[in-house]
């Protein structure tokens, strides 16, 4: 079985994060960039299959040159090989562009299952997996808390407000997984040593035959109009108890329509 895992590099949630106020894009220089944690979980779901049914696991990332660190980590965790799509024309790609690019790159990779995170930490769109499946014309199961993979079928559970739903699809299919899906393993030192010998295929827009599609700026389906810094937090209100603090708190809450 061939499994492709979509991995995105994002600014570390624990570090400093900001948007570039000129371009509206994420500042990737400020803090450390890491593999999105949700993608480590997605990868783990794939690696469990690799342990139990000898699946081949390929990671695919679309990102700048520095995203090679995310690839290295994925390979060290156990992925067999990687595909890195990097092209200057993809800077600032929107959802549509991202999904089209990923789908185009997948055309030459006959996979059985595509695993993605349900939602990235930075963009937070939560739409890429579904869009990719639409473009490829294969079924998708999104937001799975648990995943069972069989030879020709994938199934899993998704929670909703009222309980949970079991869903299944025949392969090939796309799934996206939630935080509950798996606890990612740590790279082992052996894995780290082996990673440098694993194949990484570099792709760009022409190699995946997307170069005829006009550049992003002409063809945006979404545009960031303005971006502004969040206002400084102000001090808040201090209520000193002089016997009437309870009433004052109630007044404050009522004034702000909180009660």
């Amino acid at each position: 079985m061939k499994i492709v895992v979509l991995v995105k590099q994002v600014p570390d949630t624990w570090g400093q994060r900001a948007l570039d106020l000129q371009t509206g894009r994420i500042d990737r220089v400020l803090g450390e960039n890491v593999v999105d944690e949700i993608n480590e979980r997605a990868l783990e779901v794939g690696l469990i299959q690799q342990d139990t049914m000898e699946a081949e696991v390929i990671v695919l990332t679309m990102g700048p040159g520095s995203a090679s660190d995310a690839i290295k980590k994925s390979l060290a965790m156990g992925a067999d090989s990687a595909i890195h799509i990097n092209d200057d024309l993809l800077v600032g790609a929107d959802y549509m562009r991202t999904a089209q690019t990923i789908a185009a790159a997948l055309k030459s990779v006959p996979f059985d299952l595509l695993i993605a995170g349900d939602k990235s930490t930075d963009g937070g769109g939560g739409v890429i997996p579904a869009m990719v499946s639409e473009i490829l014309g294969i079924p998708h199961l999104t937001h799975l808390d648990s995943v069972t993979i069989e030879a020709s079928k994938v199934s899993g559970e998704r929670s909703n407000n009222n309980g949970s739903v079991r869903a299944h699809a025949t392969l090939p299919a796309v799934i996206s997984v939630t935080e509950r899906s798996a606890e990612p393993r740590y790279p082992t030192f052996r894995g780290i040593m082996k990673a440098k010998k694993k194949p990484v295929i570099s792709e760009n827009l022409s190699s995946i035959s997307l170069d005829s599609v006009s550049p992003v700026s002409d063809n945006e389906t979404t545009a960031v109009l303005t971006v502004e810094a969040r206002a400084e937090r102000i001090g808040g209100i201090k209520i000193i108890d002089e016997g009437d603090a309870g009433n004052k708190i109630a007044e404050f809450l009522a004034l702000n329509r909180l009660i």
Binding site: F189, M193, K196
Partner: peptide
Amino acid sequence: EEETFLIKT
């Protein structure tokens, strides 16, 4: 590089 990666892990 691999040692640095291990330490980070």
